[in-house]
Design a protein around this nucleic acid. Structure first.
Length: 881
RNA sequence: GGGAGCAUAGCUCAGUUGGGAGAGCAUCCGCCUUACAAGCGGGAGGUCACUGGUUCAAGUCCAGUUGUUCCCACCA
């Protein structure tokens, strides 16, 4: 960084170069080191074929802030990156690509498909992690893992086999959520319920042997009537109790259906009659079980009607077409009663938005009850800390109502289920490797065709990436991790499953803290999504504004658990701030050239001590905030300090001293500038790593800011008295600027300035601040005195705590306006005095408020009263003239 | 049906343990003051949704009301 360098910071000159340097130096690589305390974060693995989006950028920024902060504090930090094979998402993409070439899974076969999948994976698999690098993340890429790499796949097999042995994994025919589009079962968590308007059709089934009598019921899914096996009424419903045990006829299929009594049926909803379709509805399934009813499956895997008995011409029709035609046929037969509109909650697959059908399927499940208990317990006893706490309720509520987890997927891209079926005796063998022979002695074995839910492997991420099931030193050292940072969206999918997996297999929680982030929204507050097309590409923002600007804008204003709207203006503002830092650094660099900048504490002026003291307390504050995950507030505090205090005040303070080569305090100013710049850069580094490193190295502050020390609070640098003095000077400067503005004094016009005070201490302070008042408040000269008679005629004045300040501006003084201004000022002060007086007259306040608070109020009261008196005197004098 | 969040300046949002209402953008006025016009200085703009309560003291804690967003749930 040299004098002739650009007045604008250009991230493109810096970012890639520094990132490569960091990687070369191996700063982000962590090795087991017993002499240091580990600090570990598991990066949520993005989908292997995914693209970086704003959610990633937010999440990664927050984690990087924590990692860099902790590294600077001396922790041995590991940020474990990697990717997720994302079973359904990836397979869908591959199938779509294949379709472009006219290929299908069936045509390629399993082996052919997987070959293609891996090839594509090799082609695009590195893209997203390359994109993450653009953000400047301090992740340990040497340890990058993939959920389907050899080690992690072994972990998956190990877990499956162990859970199976324990009886916590079982295979069974259950009603599962089925996606007719993806043709696979999915878990409860993957179903998104949406309230939709839907038809509500009323039909009648004639009662057998009761000429003309019918039972009327309502349904939102008429097509399922083909699978009806009964109708149910409430046993206490007097309207129907006499019919219990009799039968109705399904007019289309001609089947006889018993009328059963079941408490599930509400008498006050619909007609009080429910058709029972156990194969296609979770409630009906339960009713069917209670009454020993058969299940009649009417649907194929693709959502068309199958060849079920009685389906007739409906066979092969799509479910919605069948719905329409069945309504029409019932109407033609005279059994359609009416159609209403109702709001109905419809389940859709979160990946493809197709409406999910409950279907009877033979699937693998994880028994959740025993696993959920310790996960619940860990939260309730405080071992697991969720930030913000309100998400704890969501966590417990979900675990308390948890059902068994359907883990088998009818997909090929994923971990194939390690279950082997004997073609002879039917025995099922679950093993990590294919058994040579079945128990029965035969070798007629076939492995299960299905693969595992993608979350089954990511649930193991905190320990599988560290080498489990091997007992590696890494596992011993870095596990449990320190904090997990993730969006609330995947609390159920991932966080909870990691918790119980860690407890089950490591005997210990995978992390103590869970920091929940919000999700990124667009300017209008809409969730950023592919389908809406309202996503903003972080890479484009980085290209235009730099990674630091993007990161800083995501960090500021971020509070745990709250959604964040993306505003380009915020990025611009961050960019402007970083540019400010760049220019402040240039200024310092320019002045340092050829100068000695050594100084001792005793050489420092009050202004130097003031800024050092501020930087000192800021260091403490930022440390505390980051430890509380208040990343947004921390970023904000740093920005306010650097911009408002350091740049706008301190650097301005130093100019007069720097420009005068003879000034005896020049070196002290340079030394302080360097000190505070260094502190500022280090406080800022976790948020904006590139800019801070570039400047840090330009100043030869050290080898790299990445491995520098995070600023610590130092009691020896607490200068409360000097802080107070300088604040008083600032207040005077502000008051004078305000006065000049109000009087329309051109900035170029300097004026002699008189500070009058009866307080010796105040005179000392202002005497010390003369140069600042001259430089910043348009004073040509400053006289500090207790003698009011020095003041020239026609001066304007301003009252500040401890003093009156006068500027002779004869030609600009309009007595009437001046009087009005003073009266306004007086009124304001009177208000303050009244407020404080009321407080101090309140016996309750005096008795119960802390001593310091009362003292503070007293001091304020005295200060305002004094200022008020001064203005009163001025007004009186004016009236006399 | 159950649960949660939010409601603060024209806009978007901070306000961390209760102790004199803040920022950015927008707006108005004045400045190219040799680090920075992506800047500097100075203003204007708010009964902190409503009602009640706790407290010496409430934007902050509690209860309720209204509006709004989200999550969960097997109402056919």
């Amino acid at each position: 960084m040299k004098r002739e360098m650009e007045t604008k910071y250009n991230p493109k000159d810096v970012e890639d170069r520094l990132y490569d340097l960091w990687l070369d130096k191996g700063y982000f690589h962590a090795e087991v080191d017993e002499s240091k305390t580990p600090y570990t974060i598991m990066m949520p693995p993005p989908n292997i074929t995914g693209q970086l989006h704003m959610g990633h950028a937010l999440n990664a920024t927050l984690q990087d802030v924590l990692i860099r902060f902790k590294k600077m504090q001396g922790f041995n930090t590991l940020w474990q990156p990697g990717t997720d094979h994302a079973a359904i998402a990836t397979e869908t993409k591959i199938v779509a690509k294949m379709a472009e070439e006219g290929l299908t899974k069936a045509a390629l076969g399993r082996e052919g498909f997987l070959k293609r999948a891996w090839a594509w994976n090799d082609e695009v698999g590195g893209i997203i992690t390359q994109q993450f690098r653009k953000l400047g993340v301090a992740a340990d890429w040497k340890r990058e893992r993939f959920t389907m790499d050899e080690g992690l796949s072994q972990a998956v097999l190990e877990v499956f086999v162990r859970l199976h042995e324990k009886g916590l994994i079982y295979r069974g025919e259950r009603l599962v959520n089925w996606c007719p589009n993806c043709k696979t079962s999915i878990s409860d968590a993957e179903v998104e319920h949406e309230e939709k308007q839907s038809g509500f059709w009323y039909f009648s089934y004639p009662i057998l042997d009761k000429d003309g009598e019918v039972l009327t019921f309502a349904t939102t899914r008429p097509e399922t009537m083909l699978g009806d096996v009964a109708v149910a009424v409430n046993p206490d419903d007097e309207r129907y109790s006499h019919l219990i045990g009799q039968r109705v006829v399904m007019p289309i299929t001609g089947k006889y259906l018993p009328i059963v009594a079941d408490d599930y049926v509400k008498t006050d909803f619909g007609t009080g009659v429910v058709k029972v379709t156990p194969a296609h509805d979770f409630n009906d399934f339960e009713i069917g079980k209670r009454h020993n009813l058969p299940s009649v499956n009417i649907m194929n895997d693709d959502g068309t009607i199958n060849e079920v008995d009685g389906a007739g011409s409906y066979e092969g029709l799509d479910r919605y077409e069948a719905r329409k035609r069945i309504v029409a046929e019932m109407e033609a037969l005279g059994f359609f009663v009416k159609k209403e509109e109702t709001n109905n909650s419809v389940g859709a697959h979160d990946r493809c938005s197709s409406v999910v059908e409950p279907l009877m399927k033979l699937q693998w499940f994880v028994k959740m009850e025993d696993l959920a208990k310790p996960a619940l317990e860990a939260y309730k006893n405080g071992d697991l800390n969720i930030i913000p706490p309100r998400f704890g309720k969501i966590y417990t509520h979900w675990l308390e109502g948890i059902k068994d987890w359907c883990i088998s997927r009818q997909l090929w891209w994923g971990h194939r289920i390690p279950a082997y079926y004997c073609g002879d005796c039917g025995e099922i063998t679950v093993a990590k490797t294919a058994p040579a022979a079945c128990k029965c002695g035969c070798t007629n074995l076939a492995q299960d065709e299905d693969s595992l839910d993608t979350w089954f492997s990511s649930a193991l991420w905190p320990f599988s990436t560290l080498g489990w099931p091997e007992k590696t030193p890494e596992l011993d050292y870095f596990y449990p991790t320190s904090v997990l940072v993730t969006a609330y969206e995947i609390l159920f999918f991932w966080v909870i499953r990691m918790v119980f997996s860690g407890q089950e297999f490591m005997g210990e929680l995978p992390f103590k803290d869970v920091l929940i982030t919000g999700i990124m929204r667009d300017e209008l507050g809409r969730k950023m999504s592919k389908s809406l097309g309202n996503g903003i590409d972080p890479l484009e923002i980085i290209e235009q504004y730099g990674a630091d600007a993007l990161r800083f804008s995501l960090a500021t204003g971020n509070s745990p658990g709250n959604d964040l709207r993306f505003y380009i203006e915020k990025v611009e503002q961050s960019r402007n701030f970083l540019n400010k830092v760049w220019n402040a650094s240039r200024f310092i660099m320019m002045n340092l050239e050829g100068a000695s900048h050594e100084a001792a504490l005793e050489d420092l002026t009050p202004a130097d001590k003031w800024i050092l003291s501020k930087a000192n307390s800021l260091s403490k504050e930022v440390t505390e905030l980051l430890d509380k995950y208040e990343i947004g507030i921390a970023a904000d505090k740093v920005q306010t300090f650097v911009w408002d205090e350091f740049c706008d005040w301190y650097i301005e303070f130093t100019k007069a001293r720097l420009y005068n080569q003879e000034d005896p305090t020049r070196n002290a100013a340079l030394w302080t500038l360097r000190q505070v710049l260094s502190i500022s850069l280090r406080l800022l580094h976790p948020f904006s790593p590139f800019l801070t490193e570039e400047i840090y190295q330009s100043f030869d502050f050290g080898e790299s800011i990445v491995i520098s020390d995070f600023p610590k609070y130092d009691e020896a640098r607490n200068f409360a008295a000097d802080e107070g003095d300088i604040e008083q000077i600032k207040e005077a400067v502000r008051a004078l600027r305000n006065l000049r503005q109000q009087k329309d004094v051109p900035p170029s016009r300097k004026a002699k300035t008189f500070v009058i005070s009866q307080s010796q201490d105040a005179r000392r302070i202002f005497e010390g601040g003369k140069a600042y008042i001259m430089a910043l408040a348009g004073a040509s000269d400053v006289t500090v005195s207790d003698d009011k008679s020095l003041i020239p005629e026609n001066s304007v004045s301003v009252v500040v705590p401890g003093a009156e300040i006068f500027m002779p501006l004869a030609d600009l003084v309009d007595m009437a306006k001046e009087k009005a201004r003073l009266e306004k000022e007086l009124k304001k002060l009177q208000g303050e005095v009244d407020r404080v007086t009321a407080k101090l007259n309140n016996q309750g306040f005096l008795a119960k408020a802390p001593e310091a608070m009362v003292e503070e109020e007293r001091a304020k009261g005295a200060k305002y009263e004094e200022m008020r008196q001064v203005i009163l005197a001025q007004l009186e004098q004016m009236n006399e003239q």
